[in-house]
Design a protein around this nucleic acid. Structure first.
Lengths: 169, 169
DNA sequence: CTCGTTTGCTTTGATCAGTAAACTAATGCA
DNA sequence: TGCATTAGTTTACTGATCAAAGCAAACGAG
């Protein structure tokens, strides 16, 4: 039956749209997608995180994070600071430039999704959510901790807009 | 209530699951994801295509295809033959080994989706399909002719404007 | 037919993302 | 005190990708 095919096609369109947006997006911020993702996660976490946390969240090795953070630091978009409680740890923080770059990369894809989603009727939202979760469950047996970050990042329920650099305690 | 967030999380899980499966899949066939994609497309096209067509379909440059085909050829999975009608053209064909490798890489993700999808009640299928299409439309304004092949990164039918905005820093 | 343009592909030389393994330094436990 | 663990970096490598330059075949006026 054709519904299966049609569903696969729709899925594919979703995947492709996401990928394309991610690239455009990154270039809008003047960085590569991977670096943008790092910045977005740092932002999401309130302004700082550790390489370890980044590696886990992004699903890559710590060595990869080291490389990305190196480049971001060289570009002055983030900077490193040693944690005071555990001196093995490093805190990765956005610089002002980093925040500026992030804001130049409005997450069109996600914003669009959010905007349209929130325009739906209540029951439609519920149905969409349940369908998406069902598909996710169908495809993803394991339980992966995925953040609500699509192209990663713009959902910013930035309730606390503190820009201080209270480098971890 | 956070339906929006939850939807984004589900979406993200879908994307991640797809990526992960793609890797597993490729390793089952003993090749990398990109090479597997090349082989799948060749297969889909009936056993042979040109580098140009592959580049268009995958949304990468011809140079990239040259590289992938080089490696596949070195591994004996495809071979090149000059076209007889237009000697500038090259035909990329699967070898027996290539076909064998392909068959060792059943598309786990897709099969799983299909299997589970077809187990659903009729009305559930209809609902899922409509939800997926809705999301696809929300994310992907353009009309893309996507094939029911679930992969990340394949571009079916390049829309000119997209091509230009891609691939810059 | 011929010359200039277009087309299809490859080469070259780069960048980016990613890994594994070895290493360093700080922690923490017994 | 001493050993195992943890966090992060370094090193050396691979794979995918691109832009630009090059080459050869095909096409299309004139």
């Amino acid at each position: 039956m054709d519904r299966t095919d049609d569903s696969l096609i729709a899925l594919r369109r979703i995947l492709r749209a996401t990928e394309l947006y991610e690239r455009d997006l990154a270039s809008a911020a003047g960085v590569t997608p991977a670096k943008l993702r790092v910045m977005q996660i740092v932002h999401m976490k309130g302004g700082w995180t550790t390489p370890k946390a980044l590696a886990t969240q992004m699903g890559v090795s710590q060595a990869t994070i080291t490389g990305l953070v190196d480049k971001l630091a060289k570009d002055g978009l983030v900077h490193r600071a040693q944690s005071e409680t555990d001196r093995r740890q490093v805190n990765v923080m956005l610089t002002d430039d980093g925040r500026a770059a992030l804001s130049r990369a409005p997450d069109a894809l996600q914003q669009r999704f959010v905007r349209e989603f929130e325009r739906l009727e209540d029951w439609e939202q519920a149905q969409l959510l349940s369908s998406l979760e069902r598909v996710a469950a169908m495809l993803d047996a394991r339980d992966i901790d995925a953040s609500p970050v699509l192209t990663v990042g713009a959902i910013q329920k930035d309730t606390q807009s503190r820009k201080d650099s209270r480098g971890k305690a």
